[in-house]
Design a protein around this nucleic acid. Structure first.
Lengths: 213, 213
DNA sequence: TGAAAATTTGCAACGACTCCAAGTTTTCAT
DNA sequence: ATGAAAACTTGGAGTCGTTGCAAATTTTCA
């Protein structure tokens, strides 16, 4: 069988708890909502909530789970002749130009980001996620360039590229929380991306160019 | 009078609590030490601890209080003809070359940093501090360049310069925790600083050059 | 010296989180 | 189908960080 009853129920329960929690968080803020309230609203016990989610913060970031390898994916999938930084800049431009929710360009997300902005615990968690994204990227860069373990360059490059991504996402978040329109923000962030590319060195822009297969 | 009995006792008590706490943290790790234990070891009540320190993390970072304006200070104090990034690189080189405890180059600090490395709560706090450092730098850059409020360039430049500082401090910490000798780490970090300077663009290296008085 | 101001303390309570020992439900071989 | 095994849920008790409050205690200063 593809999926038994047990698996299905688990997935549903997990999703439901996460949805209920996110709803409450967006409505009243992260700190103002108690795990006990979430449990009650989701018709489960507090312990069940903790069975699915290690911490309260995880309830909020459940959806962003697939984001930890975003940069690694983008770089791995870049076409022949393109550098790592260029790949990330291109993918970011594509997402921004498409006014994609994946980079936070969606009216509904303003409330979502406001919750993060107001809860230090969530900001910390977001930073930890960014660190993971960067670590995964560094790993890819090490593989692709075959750099020795004591070479700091992949670390530095992952830092620069991670900074690009982080800055863009942060600026989008900041502007969206201000209540701006996604399209308008998209336009502005495209020029921000130009500014960012302008202040990167050739060294960074040409690191890890994908060789011909 | 310059300082009454009350003020003196407060300062002493505060210092004593912080010292006792740091000692316990270094000895047994951040999470393994309870605030109640700290209070008992310092001969005060738990409430008194909280009178002086808002959170448990603040007990640990009490010493690092003067660090939030480090970059702002460095940039503000740079000589005529020097850019913001150049000033930070120069100051960093000076501290590293001097094997200064201010950048973590001291055998005793290895244990200190190990505590941070092992406690997520402390790493978050350290990141928050770095954010403050960067925000203060951005403010200075805005003042000095007279950039309009909607100009993102000071934000980007503060990001790049903050990244330089953060990377150097992080690498020092990582190497010291490995048990390396301060002198040895100092030497390696000097070459790291060269690598970092090499991958920065002229645009960054020449931003906010101090004009002649 | 004695009342006002500041500090310390104990106590109760809240919320996140963990551990553990029952229940309950789902699975699956028979 | 069915009954034991495995997986999931639950309640309860407890730890720890943190806050609020009112009762001491200490320091200040007129």
């Amino acid at each position: 069988m593809a999926e038994g009853l047990r698996e299905r129920k688990k997935r549903q329960t997990r999703q439901y708890i996460s949805d209920v929690a996110t709803g409450l968080f967006v409505e009243r803020g992260f700190d103002a909502v108690t795990v006990a309230e979430i449990a009650e609203a989701a018709n489960v016990s507090v312990n069940t909530v903790y069975n699915y989610f290690p911490t309260k913060e995880d309830l909020f970031f459940d959806r962003s789970a697939g984001m930890v390898d975003r940069l690694a994916r983008w770089v791995r999938g870049r076409p022949e002749g393109e550098s790592a930084a260029a790949a990330v800049l291109r993918e970011l431009r594509e997402e921004v130009e498409a006014v994609s929710p994946r980079v936070g360009l969606l009216s509904g997300y303003a409330a979502f980001m406001k919750v993060i902005e107001e809860a230090p615990a969530l900001r910390s968690r977001l930073w930890a996620l960014a660190q993971e994204v960067q670590a995964n990227l560094e790993e890819v860069l090490r593989e692709e360039t075959g750099a020795p373990a004591d070479d700091e360059l992949p670390h530095l490059m992952a830092g620069q590229i991670g900074w690009i991504h982080g800055t863009v996402i942060a600026v989008i978040g900041r502007e969206m929380v201000k209540g701006r329109e996604p399209r308008e923000v998209s336009r502005e962030v495209l020029t921000l991306l130009d500014d960012i590319e302008d202040l990167l060195s050739e060294r960074v822009l040409n690191y890890a160019v994908r060789e011909a297969a």
